[in-house]
Every structure is written in C-alpha cells, then in structure tokens.
Design a protein around this nucleic acid. Structure first.
Length: 651
RNA sequence: GCCGCAAUAGCUCAGUCGGUAGAGCACGUCAUUCGUAAUGACGGGGUCACAGGUUCGAAUCCUGUUUGCGGCACCA
C-alpha cells in the first residue's frame, strides 16, 4: 500500500476484493488501481507480492481512464443510433480521445448533440465494465459474424502470446487492451464531443475512409468548462486573426498559400532576417542561389523523382500556351523547392581543400513547394516561404561537433524569442531510402549521441524518437514548437545527407591529396521564417518584444497645441532608429489609445500641453493602464536600450 | 488530395417562406481641442466568391469550380 502497510492476500485475489476487504466505502469510490506501477482494472487478479495504489476518479491517473471509457461509450452510442456502423479504434489522445467508425454516411454537425444525449443515457445505466479473455479464434469468429471486419484485422494484429481481451459494458462489447474503470457511471457528466472529420484506416490515405469523432472528458464539469474556456481564449491568439488586427499580412484567392506581406509585417520579417544574419556572421558565409534551375538539375539531385508531385515547373508563357510549337523554347525549369542543390553547385565551383572544411553556406532562400491544398494553414504551411537555410560541408570527423554547434545556435535563438519548451525528435531511417544500412547505422549513431547530450545539457529540451520518419537521404532532428492551441509545428531541423554530395560528385582534396566526398548537413533554425513568425505571434498573442515589433512606438497628442512638440519627439525617436509613428489626428486621447492598443503597439508616448511645456512625455505600455511621465531624454535612453535586439544587448 | 462545414461592404455579422441588400465598426466631410481603451452629425461604399441550372422571380434551392476553416493524409 502507498502508506507502507502490507496486507496478506490469497493468490488470484482481485484489486476489488482487496479494496472491499479494507472498506466497502473504499471500494465504492475506487475506479482502478496502480498495480506494480501499472494502471490496471480492479478486476485484475493479484498472483504474487505486489504494490497497490487505489485510484479514485478524481486522481490524475484516472483521467486517461475516464477518456478511454468515454470513447467506448461513444462507440456504443454510435452503434445504437446507426446500426451497421463498424467500430475500429478509439484511443486516448492529448486533451481527449477519438473514435474512428466505418459508416457510409458521414456524420453531420447535428449528430454530435444527438450522440452526446445517447451517451448520457448509457452512462446513467452505470453498467459495469467486465473483462474477458477470448481465444483468438473465438474473437475472430465473433467479430466476423457481427460484420466487424476491422476488429478481425485488429485481432490478427495482436502479437502472439498476448491475450485477446474483450471489455463488456452491459450488452455492448469491444476488443480492447484496457484498462477500464469499474462501470460506465464513473465517467460522469463532464464530457463533450468536439468535432468530427474524415480519417483513414491505419492512417493510410490509400486505405478505407473512416469517420472520426473527437471528444474530451474530465473528472468534473469545472475542469471541462475551464478547458473549453482555455481553447476559446487560445483561438483569439490565432496568428491569422492577429495578422489582420496588426495589419501584418494577408492572403487572397488568387494566391493560395502565398503571403502578401504588408509594410508592418515586412518590417518584422526584416528584423528577423537581420537578427539571424548577425547570428550567422561569425561562422557562415551567406550566399544566394537562383530561383529557377533546369529540370535536369533536379533530376540529378533526385528531387524530381521523389517530389515532382510537390514541385512547380515553369516554362515560358509562349511555350506554355503552344506546347507543340517547335520554335518556342520548350525547356522546363523548376522553381526551387530547396536551396541545397544550389549550395552544392557553389561548393563545387572551384577546388575545395580539407582546409576549407567545415564550409558553412547560408541563405535566406525563398522556396516554393506545391503543398496539397488541404495542408495550407495561414503562415504555418504555405506554398512559398523563406528558409533560414544552411548547408555544412564537413569531414566525417567534424560531423558530431557540427551537430552540437547547430544545436547550441538553435537553442540560443529560441531562447532569444522566449520559447520555454522545445521538443527535439530524432527521425530515423524510413522504408524508402538511399544509402547503405552501414551508413544509416553510423549517422543515426552520431545523432543519438548528440540527442543524449542535448537532453542532458538543456532542461528546456524534451527529446524523442520518430521511428522511420527520417528523410530518404538521411536521419534528421526535428525541432518543434507549438501554436496557440497546442498543435506542433516543425521549425528547426538538422539533417545528415548521404545523397547529394554523391549525386553531384562533390569532393574536396584531403590531406593525403586524394579526392574525398564531404559529409553534408542541412540545417535551418527558424525553418520557415513565415511559420516561425506565425508561432511567435501566437506565443506572445501579438505582443511582440520591442526589438522586433513592427511599430515600436506611437507619439500621440492630446491637443493640437502639442503638435509641434510631438513632431520633435517623433523626429528624435526616428533618429535613434526606432520604428515610430505619429498620430496628430483631432481625436480624443481615449480613442487614440484604444486604437493603438488594438494595433498592439508596445509603447505610446502621449504628449499634451503639460508635456510640451515641460519637455516630457507620458509613457504608456501595451497591456497596462499605467502612465509614467518622464523627460524626453530619459524616455529616449530607455527606449533605445529596450529596443536593442537580444544578441546586440549581450554585447 | 480525402471527409465535413463555410463564403453577404475593408472588418464582425444579420438577412424569416424564393419577391430584388441591412447593422455596428472602419472610411470621407463637417463640427468638436478633449489627459490615457470608442465625441456627434451627415455621406460614400455590394456582380451577395465564381460559372451554370431550376423559377415569372435566386444572396436564399440544385450542380460544378475556387478559396477558407476543422480534422485526415502529406510535409525534401
């Protein structure tokens, strides 16, 4: 027992029996147990010495069970309402659960309340969850008979030696690994179906289409309400909404997935580039490759073969309109989807010596990818974007140090932007790949070692492995950040490449005078600058740090008598290099304060008659109603130092 | 690309049973000179995403297309 007490029991006694023996009221409020550290049903027999902790429905451990049980009840409700619907899987996910159904007619938005109602009825019946272990044959025969063909497949997929477990809730049953709570009544009332969508059997777009329902559940209704409120608040931080409010960028129908950057958004974009450029100055050489290159080059690089579905091809407009006209130049170019082939050409131009390595070529490269229409998402997923890309040509021996160096830069940059948590995942060899197993073993080995070091050295880094998710040309690290509602987006990346140097015949002259193929590392810190800014906007809810804010300060007057003074203030701010605006409109100060607050200008310098006479300014910060009156000189000194980008401030 | 939903003024949205378009904010003009989140009056602004169809008549019903939103799949 958690309190250290020991109880002798007979082998085979269930958790429920143990609880009951302690006290019937304990049994009544217990929904599951942690047996030897593993969350289990109360029905689980205990066959040897064990540690037991009983779990009530309000314990943190129970949340997963509540959600999983709710998913089962959802499945029962759907089969009640639409007989003939097949059930597939219904796992617990972050913040809730989903269940996938095979149903000819898709769900409609009106179906969700109907299903919820039926679920409430099922929960009210409070049928116990009971577990049975069936033979494989029995389970297959049963599900086949019922027409549950997906369940038959799932039974087949259970590893030999593992029990085929069936959970009943009243008359309804499901194949399930468990565990579950004692009865459906333990679910309570704090559940909600949140949305529905299409999905695919086994996540395969070639597989059978399924209908998914998402929901969430909590131990009590207050928690559910708080969660829904939190989501609602987070949605207000959507970068697409903030972008409009701050007049940063827009999209329009003629340009799906390409950004119109407005003056303000572009000011911030340029600050981001300027910052990154300073961070690279010491170690990298900045280059710029061409936007269009002949299709043949992309065939050589392999991109045409692997990704032509996602590339833009370009011809002259004449050739495009007259495909059979021999006199028109029919040559096909591709809009670059990556900068690497360009960088390899630059590396190859002129003989390189081992003394030149590591050679780090950086580019703020604008790339275009023909992303599937359904993937487009504001600034986060676009068809034309700018990468803070770089390629490092180095020797085998230099690889590990280079990866660590990249990670240091990555984390330092993320810190400057205030990101508290970064998830780094190592993506290993995919099924379709180039290179020998020995090469993969070697490169993955180095990256694993580097991943371990990262986790040990920086508490902000959470690490993991994405098995089989590497690129076709090598393993990679994915650095992911989250948006306002918790969706993960890959930003930074470090990728080892077995493919390109060989395909393009890149080499350097080694110390022994022999030609040697360099190791190539792709890396991006922000990844897509568009995406990075989208994440940043959501992370700070549009309240950008002063140094990167599009408009850093607005000088605004209370009366027109202060206009001349306001202009002086504005001119001095400009001279300091601050991005400022002046608002001399004949409007009430309340109106102006409101407007600039909504536009999320970090600093307002308000001047009236008093300030003009005394050579002062009244400083008001975004998000605060406080006003601080200070001399103009004090304000200038303060703002100049505050507007210093973090890297320059460190110096 | 797949499933569902949506598209009306610059923005947020209303528009009932199919009868010919409306509000607030924004914008313009005028008045107002005001001390920290909306001053008032007046005015301009619409191919109701686009293309077909049904109908005497379509923002409204049907079909297709485009774009967006939520997932799925994809993400070099």
């Amino acid at each position: 027992m958690p309190d250290g007490a020991k109880r002798p029991i007979k082998p085979g006694t269930s958790g429920a029996d143990v609880a009951k023996a302690i006290s019937p009221s304990l049994l009544k409020r217990t929904v599951a147990m942690v047996l030897n550290g593993t969350l289990s049903d109360l029905a689980e027999p205990i066959n040897a010495d064990a540690t037991i902790k009983f779990v009530t429905r309000t314990d943190p451990e129970a949340l997963e069970l509540i959600r999983h049980d709710t998913a089962h009840v959802l499945a029962e409700a759907v089969q009640d309402l639409w007989p003939g619907t097949q059930v597939t899987i219904g796992p617990v996910i972050e913040n809730g659960f989903f269940y996938d159904f095979a149903k000819a007619e898709p769900f409609t938005p009106e179906d969700l309340p109907r299903i919820e109602k039926r679920m409430s009825e099922i929960i009210a019946k409070n049928a116990p969850f009971t577990r049975q272990v069936w033979s494989r044959d029995k389970a297959k025969a049963y599900f086949k008979e019922k027409g549950e063909l997906f369940k038959v497949e799932l039974v087949d997929a259970i590893p030999p030696g593992e029990d085929v477990k069936i959970y009943n809730q009243g008359a309804w049953l499901d194949l399930c690994r468990g565990p579950h709570m004692a009865s459906t009544g333990a679910i309570g009332k704090a559940f909600k179906l949140t949305r529905h969508s299409g999905s695919y059997w086994r996540g395969d777009a070639q597989g059978k289409p399924l209908q998914r329902i998402y929901g969430t559940a909590f131990a009590d209704e207050k928690d559910l309400a708080a969660y829904l409120k939190q989501i609602e608040e987070a949605e207000k931080r959507d970068h697409r909404k903030i972008g409009r409010e701050m007049d940063l960028f827009h999209f329009q129908e003629e340009g799906p997935g390409v950004v119109f950057w407005h003056a303000k958004g572009w000011a911030t974009f340029q600050q981001l580039i300027a910052y990154m450029r300073r961070r690279l100055a010491e170690d990298y050489q900045e280059v710029q490759g061409p936007q269009l290159l002949d299709k043949s080059l992309w065939e050589t690089s392999g991109h045409w073969g692997w990704y032509s579905d996602n590339m833009f091809a370009v011809k002259s407009a004449t050739a495009f309109m007259n495909p059979n006209d021999d006199t028109a130049e029919q040559r096909v170019f591709a809009l670059k989807p990556m900068n690497c082939p360009g960088h390899v050409q630059i590396f190859k131009h002129g003989l390189k010596s081992y003394r030149d390595l590591p050679l780090r070529l950086a580019e703020f490269g604008c790339v275009h990818r023909y992303e599937p229409s359904g993937a487009l998402h504001g600034l986060m997923r676009v068809r034309g974007f700018t990468q803070d890309d770089a390629h490092i040509f180095c020797t085998e021996e230099q690889l590990e140090a280079e990866c660590l160096k990249i990670n240091d830069l990555m984390m330092s940059v993320y810190k400057d932007f205030g990101f508290k948590e970064v998830v780094v995942k190592l993506a290993t060899r995919p099924a379709k790949r180039v290179g020998t197993d020995a090469m993969w073993d070697h490169a993955e080995g180095i990256l694993r070692k580097v991943l371990g070091k990262m986790a040990a050295e920086d508490s902000r880094i959470k690490t993991g492995i994405n098995e089989g998710e590497g690129t076709f040309y090598g393993p990679k690290f994915e650095y992911t950040l989250r948006d306002a509602i918790g969706r993960e987006w890959q930003c930074g990346t470090t990728q080892v490449d077995f493919n390109l140097p060989e395909r393009f015949g890149a080499f350097y002259i080694a110390a022994d005078g022999e030609k040697k193929q360099p190791v190539m590392v792709h890396r991006a810190i922000c990844g897509s600058l568009e995406r990075f800014l989208g994440i940043l906007l959501e992370d700070c809810a549009g309240h950008l740090p002063l140094w990167i804010a599009p408009v850093q300060a607005v000088v605004t007057t209370i009366v027109s008598d202060a206009d001349a003074y306001a202009k002086q203030v504005h001119a001095k701010l400009k001279k300091l290099g601050l991005r400022t605006e002046i608002d001399l409109r004949n409007e009430k100060i309340n109106y102006k304060v409101r407007e600039h607050s909504l536009a999320k200008v970090p600093v307002m310098l308000v001047v009236g008659k008093r300030e003009a006479e005394e050579g002062k300014v009244s400083v008001r910060r975004l998000g605060s109603q406080e006003q601080t009156v200070m001399t103009l000189e004090e304000a200038l000194t303060m703002l100049k130092s505050e507007a210093m980008p973090p890297d320059l401030a460190r110096e």
